[in-house]
Design a protein around this nucleic acid. Structure first.
Length: 298
DNA sequence: GCAATTTGACCCCC
DNA sequence: GGGGGTCAAATTGC
């Protein structure tokens, strides 16, 4: 599945690709194997060392992400298209509303069953790989906080149907419930041609460990808000192809103290898994950090 | 001036 | 009929 044909199968497809299960299984297998390898490599590390704590956090996050993937695979219905979505604007009617004269087409509403959706919970409305435009805000019945509606900014020019809803959590007002719906069809950005094939899963986890309190030889990379575009990833990702959001939040049972945004990426051109994570606005590659620590030991 | 956001109305689904 | 998702004019910000 490392060649362009595989991606082309996925690209813009409104029907389930035949290798959907195979893709997920390969992704899960790769992540699991890599996590196992990482565990082996860290056996030499002293328990409680910053590197090991970080790595254990990542492994835990991977495990959680795999559970989410597994769960989504069971519940989500990716690539299903709402028949209503296909028949918009084929009739125009005009509605007079006070001062406003509103021209409306036949409405094409999304199914309430939320096909191809995935809900995440995050500590903040973190930026993801896409740019969104807010198009509405609504007070929800019996809800304390309003719900905000966003759509992909590329809807007008590329017809991207992806939307997301953001609502402050009732139980935990510091958390935001983000529901992603639809799939991005705006990936083929001519201005951001990808040079390598890769996919990734990224997610936010929380840890109680004061992981970055110790001075670590962490390489500082140029990094802006958009984690994805700052790397060599294309705008698309397998998580997105699979109908998942770019970021998946996993709430740990322990009280949160420090956010850790992790990213598992697979570079098809190198047949290689990478583990990156962000802390304190620094984007850190695990390989780089391990190499630096090993260099320091030798 | 343009783009993004706000906000009230519209309209579909349950 | 009501809740909630979307539209689009008005407003705001750069």
């Amino acid at each position: 599945m490392r060649d362009m044909e595989a991606w082309d199968k996925l690209e813009g497809s409104s029907s389930p690709p035949p290798d959907w299960k195979v893709t997920v299984e390969a992704l899960i297998r790769g992540a699991r194997d890599s996590a196992s390898l990482l565990s082996c490599q860290l056996q030499d590390q002293a328990s409680g060392s910053p590197t090991r704590v970080l790595a254990e956090g990542i492994i835990h996050s991977i495990s959680s992400a795999l559970l989410v993937l597994d769960d989504c695979e069971k519940t989500a219905v990716p690539w299903t298209t709402n028949p209503l979505q296909a028949s918009s604007d084929d009739r125009q009617n005009e509605v007079s509303s006070g001062k406003r004269k509103i021209t409306r087409g036949r409405r094409a509403y999304r199914s309430r069953s939320l096909p191809n959706s995935c809900t995440t919970i995050t500590a903040k409305t973190m930026k993801d790989a896409y740019s969104w435009r807010k198009y509405g805000q609504k007070r929800i019945y019996k809800a304390t906080f309003p719900r905000c509606y966003y759509r992909c900014t590329h809807k007008p020019d590329r017809g991207c149907q992806a939307t997301k809803q953001v609502q402050q959590s009732e139980e935990e007002p510091t958390m935001f419930v983000i529901t992603y719906m639809g799939e991005h069809t705006c990936r083929s950005n001519p201005n951001k041609a990808s040079t390598s094939e890769s996919c990734f899963i990224s997610f936010e986890s929380r840890t109680t460990e004061p992981m970055m309190s110790a001075p670590l030889p962490i390489p500082k990379l140029d990094f802006d808000d958009e984690v994805v575009s700052s790397s060599s990833q294309p705008e698309s990702s397998l998580s997105e192809e699979l109908g998942f959001p770019e970021t998946m939040a996993i709430e740990a049972s322990a009280p949160p103290t420090l956010p850790l945004i992790s990213q598992i990426s697979f570079d098809f051109s190198r047949d290689y898994w990478e583990f990156d994570f962000m802390s304190k606005n620094e984007f850190i590659n695990l390989d780089d950090m391990l190499n630096l620590e090993n260099d320091g030991l030798s």
